[in-house]
């Protein structure tokens, strides 16, 4: 066998083996680090999947059904929903669209939620302009998903 042919077949084989699966996989677009899951929200109309994270304090207070307090942190991470390539019947989070953050601070013994929005795409195109107060309430009012 000629070396070129041999080399060619090895390349071909190597290609077939890796099947380029890993090349198609997305990086993890949001590192939740010390934040934990509060709940998830799929919006069938906007075609998005979102996960609401909170810091330890936020989760503790939710679990104990205590009122919000200084230093609670919430992050609602929204992705576009897309079909799962490997199972017809399942949708999965795709492109990262935006991250909404609510941070609770205290001013003169009053808790003040601070809302920020960071967008990488335009999921709220239909609903613009965004009402900060409404979004803050929406984020704060989500119930903890049962997670034993």
């Amino acid at each position: 066998m000629k070396y070129t042919t041999l080399y060619g077949s090895i390349l071909l084989l190597a290609n077939a083996c890796t099947s380029n699966y890993t090349g198609h996989i997305r990086d993890l677009s949001f590192q939740n680090d010390s934040l934990r899951v509060i709940t998830m929200i799929v919006n069938e109309r906007a075609n998005t999947i979102a996960v609401l994270f909170g810091n330890k304090l936020a989760l503790q207070n939710k679990l104990a059904q205590k009122p919000r307090e200084n230093s609670e942190l919430y992050k609602l991470v929204t992705w576009r929903q897309q079909p799962n390539t490997f199972w017809y019947g399942s949708n999965i989070n795709g492109t990262l669209l935006c991250i909404e953050t609510v941070e609770i601070t205290s001013k003169e013994r009053q808790v003040v939620p601070n809302y920020t929005l960071e967008c990488f795409d335009s999921p709220f195109a239909e609903a613009l302009p965004i009402d900060n107060v409404e979004r803050t309430t929406f984020i704060m009012n989500q119930q903890l998903a049962v997670s034993p």
Partner: peptide
Amino acid sequence: YKTWQVMSATSRFDNGTIRI
């Protein structure tokens, strides 16, 4: 597991469940 990285979130229309 609750302190781990979230790998994905999925919604099944074949059997009416959602998953993290």
